[in-house]
Design a protein around this nucleic acid. Structure first.
Lengths: 159, 159
DNA sequence: AGAGGTAGGTTGAAGTATCAAGCATTTGTT
DNA sequence: AACAAATGCTTGATACTTCAACCTACCTCT
């Protein structure tokens, strides 16, 4: 009677599973991070992406790309993180249009202290359910889907 | 320097891909549905779940389970859908605590008219990127993850 | 050198989600 | 029969996301 009739059995299963994961996984990780440090999964990822780069800073637009967020969303969140002392905004030396987000020492300390619990949650909620082959399959298929959604997404550039 | 170092290569790829899909896919589907009928992916799913059941009605808690939502979120959304004339709230005949959400004719017409475009978007954004084997693998792995997140999730009950 | 276009980013308003609290009904216990 | 606990749901406040409008800086072309 609805769209789902127009998908075959596996397609329907794959689609419904992805939809459910999509709702449940971020919610569970949010809960863990909220309890551990009063921040959201998105907040955490912003800090994580900064912590991984040489110098711990990135232009807003690059940071937006690496967190799959709009510039607007990122701007609001950086304002919030700035108020907590975890991130600072700096001018770009060569292009005055660019704002550079810079992880502070306090921000680095925060993510270092949160990382073990967060990784533990990712493992126990998702990875522990899968065999090594499953993980490899999911990586391969997931990247195909990402490529379709955004053909030059940054995670594809690393390969 | 962050958590990601503690995941091996495939684990990191799988996790980052899922995270990106998680942000990009709903956003793309939201955009399509917003343009086609001024509703969100979640709104659409609420209508879709109702349209699939015999009689086109479900108790709020069952509907919440089938959309992976909290009762609170669902209650707010049903209020909104009710204002648009797509859903009605009715009393349960045997248990006065229960509210039954009922899809109206107008709601049914809405979803019937939106379904082709929505399914088309699901196909072009996700399924068309995958082989039949990929789809089967994703269904299998996805259901494993769902089972870990919620071991009696409704999508697992059908099997 | 100036005009028009593009890129990078911010802001405020409006809509949406989440959280905690609360209320009514039903079930279980004694 | 009465009371406590559990179930089903709603509501209001707070926090977050999105959208559209906007601003400034840079780039290109003439």
């Amino acid at each position: 009677m609805t769209e789902l009739r127009w998908l075959n059995a596996d397609e329907r299963r794959a689609w419904l599973a992805l939809l459910s994961i999509n709702t449940l996984l971020p919610a569970a990780l949010d809960t863990q991070l909220q309890a551990a440090g009063k921040l959201s999964l998105f907040d955490y990822n912003v800090l994580a992406m900064l912590s991984e780069t040489e110098g711990r800073f990135l232009p807003m637009s690059e940071l937006a790309a690496r967190t799959s967020a709009s510039l607007s969303r990122l701007s609001h969140v950086v304002t919030k993180l700035q108020k907590r002392g975890w991130v600072e905004r700096e001018a770009h030396p060569r292009d005055a249009r660019v704002t550079v987000a810079h992880l502070t020492e306090a921000g680095m300390d925060t993510i270092v202290s949160l990382a073990p619990g967060h990784v533990g949650a990712v493992r126990s909620l998702m990875l522990d359910a899968m065999t090594d082959d499953d993980v490899a399959d999911l990586a391969r298929i997931g990247e195909k889907i990402v490529a379709r959604l955004d053909d030059d997404h940054w995670i594809l550039r690393e390969r």
